[in-house]
Design a binder for these strands. Structure first.
Lengths: 256, 256
DNA sequence: ATCCTGGCCCGTAGGGCGTACGGGCCAGTG
DNA sequence: CACTGGCCCGTACGCCCTACGGGCCAGGAT
């Protein structure tokens, strides 16, 4: 199922790819039919529609009507392709709007990131450490600016942004994982529970796990009734922002 | 790199495996040399030491000195094996200690979960939706009990526990991802930045991303100096718990 | 006008993976 | 004593990534 792609290639090459550092050549046969952008776009489309599990170099090449190995003329390997896909996707975020107070800005950032991950679920499967593409840096800069000027230390600013982003990622991951399982099994939550709850009840009786049983039932009922994912997401987000507020208040004790 | 395993097998079979529902048979050839527990243990050892990317049915079978296909006598497939591994790993958590006030209890839970994920990094790569093993349910019950009796609704209790768990998972994921990249590249952060920062500086000048540049530099320096991962983890955790406190206080306005 | 060169494209092949299928083996039961 | 059903597993199929090397061809150099 899993793993990461190691990528392990030359970081200098990766950087030059991410920042599109390449003068158009003259030598060589006519116009190239392929280029990095087309490959990234095809791969992204495939990953969006069929999931990252279906993303293979063969499938990408097929989608482009080209031999598998042709991709390697433009991209060192699958790992670098994934990096390029992630940075390109982050390019969809608005990094210009810097209006409003910190809480409103962090809220907007959280919702925008969430929407992006929902659009491109595979992004959550790619490790982005040392992925220094232009769009990732612009995103980081934009997010940090939301908590700049609040008397936080630089390390605290970084932690705060990571805290919010971590919340977004973990909730989206949860949601997408559930959707994937539902898709794979061909049963939605209600069908599934109706079928297997009796079986589970025979194994784990309510007296052994009283709290889990009570809460699980209530949560199931709530989801079945008027379940609003945005509301659920907002609830946790406001808790996180309350925590940030406590920090911000403590750093600006006199003028608040 | 990624994906999940679909598993898609018969959930009833999975449940019976997770809860070890099987009377020892009599018919058949002598004593079986293999059993589910031995397979799960071997697979866990392999995943712990070499990463989930190295976990293959062949490798597990080799570690047990057995043919690959013999595993399928005890386990329907790789997906189910991963489920069994996860539930078994959660069995290491202490689910008895219910002493202390909610904040202290959530703090203990967060640290215990973090330690578990550090010990078994591959756990973060397995989707646990509808994974209803005995240890996972016991964990859920134990964690919910930490926020029981605080006048929270059941849905709020569930959200709160998820909030804390989500924080833990996202921070550990970040840390482990960074470690994996460092291992794969053979360079620690300091070496890496010393080598590639000049290259990056040529591409992204400081004036274009002023906040990212300032904060990135400060965070890098801080990590290089007296970096204490526990302290970093605690910082964010206390922010999360502050957010929970705001909720708890609002639900018990009169007697606090 | 010819040759060279270097980019592009990609077929082949090697070493992984998960697992379906079917068959050999043998202890206990009938 | 035959049978049966659990155990063990070799083989094979269809995927995956990618190293290697070769064919092709437009432009530059001579």
């Amino acid at each position: 199922m899993p793993s990461q792609h190691g990528k392990s290639g030359d970081p200098a090459r990766s950087l030059s790819l991410l920042w599109r550092t390449q003068e158009p050549t003259s030598r060589g046969r006519g116009k190239p039919g392929l280029n990095v952008d087309r490959i990234v776009a095809a791969a992204t489309g495939l990953a969006d529609s069929e999931g990252i599990a279906a993303l293979s170099m063969r499938r990408v090449a097929d989608a482009l009507g080209v031999g598998t190995m042709s991709l390697y003329t433009y991209v060192p390997g699958k790992g670098e392709l994934l990096d390029l896909m992630v940075d390109a996707a982050y390019g969809d975020l608005d990094t210009d709007d810097r209006s409003g107070a910190w809480r409103e800005r962090l809220r907007r950032i959280a919702f925008a990131n969430r929407a992006l991950y929902v659009r491109h679920p595979w992004m959550l499967q790619v490790v982005t450490t040392r992925l220094l593409g232009p769009n990732l840096i612009a995103k980081y800069d934009h997010e940090l600016s939301a908590v700049d000027g609040l008397n936080l230390s630089e390390v605290e600013m970084d932690s705060t942004v990571n805290l919010v982003n971590g919340y977004v990622e973990s909730t989206v991951r949860q949601t997408l994982g559930a959707e994937q399982v539902a898709r794979d099994s061909g049963m939605d939550d209600e069908q599934w529970w109706r079928t297997y709850d009796p079986l589970l009840a025979a194994l784990a009786d309510d007296t052994r796990f009283p709290t889990a049983s009570r809460v699980g039932t209530a949560v199931g009922r709530a989801h079945q009734a008027v379940y609003d994912p945005d509301h659920e997401f907002s609830f946790g987000l406001e808790r996180v922002l309350d925590g940030v507020r406590a920090l911000v208040d403590s750093r600006a004790p006199t003028d608040d």
